[in-house]
Write a protein that binds this DNA or RNA. Structure first.
Lengths: 334, 334
DNA sequence: CTGTTAGCGCGTTCAC
DNA sequence: GTGAACGCGCTAACAG
């Protein structure tokens, strides 16, 4: 049914070796031959079979992505970057979402053991070190994107969380705010821990201390932001000057509750986030911009470069920049 | 290096056929044998090679997704649905984003001709009919998701756009609004055309007519929403009662400009959207909820069912329901 | 129920 | 520069 390499041989009178060579851009082919083969391929509408190439050539021509969640714009942005590079280099993308704990490891293992992909990008996956060192032996390129540094030993692309948080906190202090409540993520979240540390550093620099009672621990979800903020409002403490959410989603939850409570942002209380997700500009949220797309493209480049032996292993840290909008109080200054 | 089926044969003393049978859950194997094979596989940490299975078995075990854009939450939501079904049925997902016109066709062709995938889901891809009928001959299952009905001939999952728009427009009319401006998408957008038609129907039912001057054509992007709204405000016509954007993103653009102009929503002017994207609840946008995730899972199910010969071809139309929040004026009624 | 035997379509040594 | 021959790891008849 489908036209195979063999058909090209018959049509050109050449051997499979030669045809295969033009397929793989080998220089060991006379130009005139190459052209003739290409023409016939086009005429007959020939496309090499992916699985056959993979089996014979030990290259699948695709890279895998394993990610725990989706839906939060974060993933989509990263994907855009990965896809751009993948398209440039002519490889496909295979995606798997982990649905639960444990699932993650299975997905990664499957990708690798079944040789479904040539390289794997792990997004936001906090995998046990033993597991990582184990699969490293399978010597297929692994790149960890936005993943704990525990993952040392495998290439990584991460965010300069501390710096971003420091910038944000410093900005709030410059506004004159002193009573600042932080809405943190889960304690096992690497991003959250690092961002918290950045806050602490900024405060210390200003001669202040980060008080435990000013840290409210949540889960980085919108509902969590709502809950923490409601609790804050119900408590007998005076309204803080500002709420610094360690991710945008949490900030959105806070904004919703504040609005429902009839409080104005930033007049009554300032709010800021972290991530600069798609919806942040819609509500004028001051936040920290993270170049997710760039992270994706960098990760893809690294994965492919390692695959081609052009690179050993590398750790990239992308900058996170302050992005001032209105919710911190800047809009109302003028 | 890697352990192969052959190793399992040696270890169990069985033939490759039998081992292959347990791999494929054939009932033609004695239970005790099957168990023994399974045990050895587990011990030796055996995983069948994807490419070898694909080559020999004519099944890649993955389905392809081709989509023009990404980033708009829409895609991510659909993906969640597709992924759920794919995971349930043990298939992988290959994703390709079209970067420009023409590119789309190439991506689809590659997926099919290279037999990289067993089925393809086309998301929001307005492909020429000739092209579709041509690739249909390759008899690999195709499912069009949110794609023009022109695509008749291939299975499809689409939104009841007209009904959704009718509900929305009717709701605005019930608010007493009469001067309603519609921010439409590009004229070649199927969704936009259908939604516009729904608006027209609702108006007709109310004994009104859809005036040309009340239709502002844009591109379904945020910046487009801003531009159209700015133009609206600058024109000498009186402020309309409501703006009905035919997608949320455009509505967000409108909201931003209105806010900048010091106008209050919904007190001064009502605004509504269509899609119920992730950010819609954040700004209290009244919109039409589209079950994107369900669309994704339905599409995946159809693709796999067609592949397994359990289904011929089918056209699913999912309902789009009115989702009332505050931006239409309902919040301020109470 | 299990084994034998052929390939699936392509890459890759080697020779020539 | 090109060709012949073998094998990648697995599935699928067929035979028993």
């Amino acid at each position: 049914m489908a036209v195979t390499l063999h058909d090209i041989c018959k049509a050109t009178g050449l051997s499979s070796a030669t045809v295969s060579r033009v397929l793989n851009n080998s220089p060991l082919v006379k130009d005139s031959t190459r052209e003739r083969v290409r023409e016939v391929m086009a005429e007959l509408n020939y496309f090499p079979l992916t699985s056959a190439r993979a089996l014979a050539g030990k290259r699948t021509g695709s890279i895998g992505i394993v990610s725990p969640h989706v839906g939060s714009g974060f993933f989509a942005d990263v994907l855009v970057g990965v896809d751009r590079v993948a398209a440039e280099r002519g490889v496909h993308l295979m995606i798997s979402f982990a649905h639960g704990i444990g699932d993650e490891q299975e997905l990664v293992t499957r990708f690798i053991s079944q040789r479904s992909v040539d390289a794997v990008i792990l997004i936001n996956l906090d995998l046990p070190t033993e597991f990582l060192t184990e699969i490293k032996n399978d010597r297929i390129p692994l790149v960890a994107l936005d993943t704990p540094a525990v993952t040392r030993g495998i290439a990584s692309v991460s965010i300069d969380n501390r710096c971003g948080a420091r910038l944000m906190m410093t900005h709030l202090l410059e506004h004159g705010y002193r009573d600042i409540v932080i809405l943190a993520g889960p304690e096992n979240s690497y991003d959250s821990r690092e961002r918290l540390e950045g806050c602490r550093e900024a405060l210390r620099t200003a001669g202040l201390r980060l008080l435990k009672k000013n840290i409210l621990t949540g889960s980085f979800m919108m509902e969590s932001g709502r809950k923490l903020t409601r609790r804050l409002l119900k408590s007998r403490r005076p309204l803080p000057d500002a709420i610094m959410a360690l991710n945008d989603i949490t900030a959105f939850g806070a904004l919703a509750v504040l609005r429902e409570a009839g409080l104005r942002v930033p007049q009554d209380i300032a709010v800021c986030g972290f991530d600069n997700c798609e919806a942040a500009p819609l509500v004028g949220l001051t936040t920290v911009a993270v170049p997710f797309e760039e992270m994706g493209s960098r990760a893809a480049e690294m994965a492919l470069d390692i695959l081609n032996g052009k690179l050993k292993e590398k750790h990239i840290i992308v900058a996170a920049n302050l992005l001032v909008r209105e919710s911190c109080g800047c809009g109302s200054c003028d």
